[in-house]
Design a binder for these strands. Structure first.
Lengths: 216, 216, 216, 216
DNA sequence: AATGAATGAGGGTTCATTCAT
DNA sequence: TATGAATGAACCCTCATTCAT
């Protein structure tokens, strides 16, 4: 069907193009997550993506723009995952537990998220600021927490004077810090923070901290 | 003054050497804090220290070794500051407040501490691991908290089942994360986290979180 | 000529690449021959090749790898030249003379061969050891000499107990040493070893030495 | 005895000075022999001599001048060793054997001699030319050989038309080349030229070559 | 849509050497 | 006699990027 000239069908070409682009983005996430923005080499990325340096410029324009897309991608993914969270507002305590656990599990499952943010903060948010997309993308988590707090309060379980944003920051901080700083903390505290027992014990501590903060 | 012997005092020379060495170290802290390990340029450091690239190698051997000394220095300083903390164990609640406030203020006063640790964690603790000194240097803060917890428990104020290390991590996490991630959080939350009101409000939230965690 | 397809010939590009690569190799031979491996500067080579430092790394990877290719090249050339040698086994004495003369002339015509080998031996064969190619490349000269010795013996002219390898080493040593050490020998012996008369006289001496070694 | 003032006795100081100087020279011979002139580092030498870089300049003025002294030293040693050679002119054949053996053994015992000369020839005799001493120092070996040749001729054993200098070069070449080029030859010939059997077999070959050259 | 070739500005580091006491 | 401190030129190499098909 269709008249196949010398040229392969444009469809096929476009498909290949998308493939290459995706491969680059995927590789970039891995490399930047491992070495940060400045430490991540264009060549490493192109090699991992099984293409050529030149293609990165062809599709993304520059290392910076590629990094911005990387950030946008991982933010989008976090948002999607948060949006998919399901829980019952009739049980606000359990709902809060779910949020804390989700947050913790997400960090554990996506170590690249932490390294990429670390790198970005080291550069003082230089790239995030340039991304129109990210700045429009406010975490649904805060709204989620607002709902839970409200429900808890209405059921006479939670304090009233809890700000959703503070609660969000508390939850994020506890999980993020533990993982992002595990290397220096290991040297400092002389323990393996990633041991199974340590990980689950810290989850318990976080849940405890968060619940005590909001419960009357 | 004093009777100058035939030999010129070697002290005079050494004093200048110490000056140069210190200047390099000081400059390195500033530069590495600003740009991270990979981003910090040897030339920037030597210029800021008003000396030559060569002297960095003369005194420290390599960029890596210089960075290790930088880390050791800031760790040592934190330790010294923590050790100087004074409080009354008869009032464990106030003691805990002091610790949280100190921790927060230390991060605010020493932004380089956060950036340097961020950079080091980005490199997976590569340099800290190489430092014999740091690994021997366990934070006095944990012991401090242990004492406070014990006193609070004995006075019938605090829970018994609180581990000092968890409390330490909680306090550190809340303060550190807020500051280290302020750039990406700004994009996410669309607020200026360093506004005076925001800063003091977060301190209140932290104190609240921590006290509620330990109080019976 | 021929019909140019839509796509520009990649050959055209590659041709330029080959040009650059060859120019670098050629320049490297000259520079390394003049200053040895450590003394030869990357910048000198790239300038002589009318290209940029960067291209040396683009095509060869490192100074060491470039030097290895240089060694492989000059070995290959010697081999090719030896392989092209023509002589008549019916006259083994004359054949031997030809080999000695060829060897001597080759050293005279390719002073870079001696300097490069000198440099390599100064580095204890470090690069040659890394070359898979060179180690597989055994000099045809030894086999050649074996044939001559055999023919000479069959004609009742030569001794039987002469090992081709020893004869090869003898011939090489006499010519190589004279030229490679001419600078220190000059200081020692106080003569100009490269004077025309001296050069041809030494050739006579070598032929004499070699023939007397093998003749019955 | 004597009035020991604050200063330690000048004798003692001078002795220490000579010690330091000698230590530097000795270290320089080792380091330059191992890495050549350009490859030998001032710091390596001062470390091996257990003194400081500065002392090398104090005693020798520059790296070049130190190298010149190194060359003068090893030349002097060779001369001394040659001068100490004892043999009986009544047996010129044996005398010649002794010279060849001595020469070979000297190279084997003083590998630094070969490397240093190699390095010097790589630099085109630059340093030897600057040494007044070396250029005045003509090898006694040539005169020695002249005597042997004369004796051999008078006894009706040797040819008349042998030039002592050619014989000297022949003997030197055979031994020197074998050792100086052993690294590249190993790659080329695929044998261990320093194996005991190989070493003694080559000595036999050399003696054979030399005797056949001179015997009637 | 894709790519081989080229670029030039530094990057960390090393070197022999001199200053100043 | 001896030495710690300082110097600056250069060296090899790497990087993100653009040219030219």
């Amino acid at each position: 069907m269709a008249t196949a000239k010398k040229k392969t069908e444009p469809r096929a070409l476009q498909a290949r193009a998308v493939e290459t682009r995706d491969a680059i983005l995927k590789a970039a996430i891995r490399i930047f997550a491992k070495h940060g923005f400045s430490g991540g080499r264009i060549e490493q990325i192109s090699k991992l993506a099984k293409t050529h340096d030149r293609m990165i410029y062809y599709y993304f324009g520059s290392k910076e723009k590629l990094f911005i897309e990387v950030l946008e991608t991982i933010y989008q993914r976090l948002n999607d995952a948060e949006a998919a969270l399901e829980f019952d507002l009739d049980d606000p305590v359990e709902a809060l537990r779910i949020v804390v656990r989700f947050n913790w599990q997400y960090y554990l499952d996506h170590p690249e998220f932490i390294t990429l943010l670390n790198s970005e903060n080291l550069h003082q948010g230089k790239h995030v600021k340039k991304s129109a997309q990210v700045s429009e993308l406010s975490s649904p988590a805060v709204n989620l927490l607002a709902k839970i707090i409200k429900a808890g309060h209405q059921q006479g379980l939670f304090r009233k004077d809890i700000r959703a944003r503070d609660l969000y920051l508390t939850i994020a901080a506890l999980g993020y810090f533990y993982l992002s700083n595990r290397h220096t903390l290991s040297a400092f505290l002389n323990t393996d923070l990633l041991a199974k027992k340590a990980v689950s014990s810290w989850l318990d501590s976080m849940v405890d901290t968060v619940l005590r903060k909001v419960l009357l």
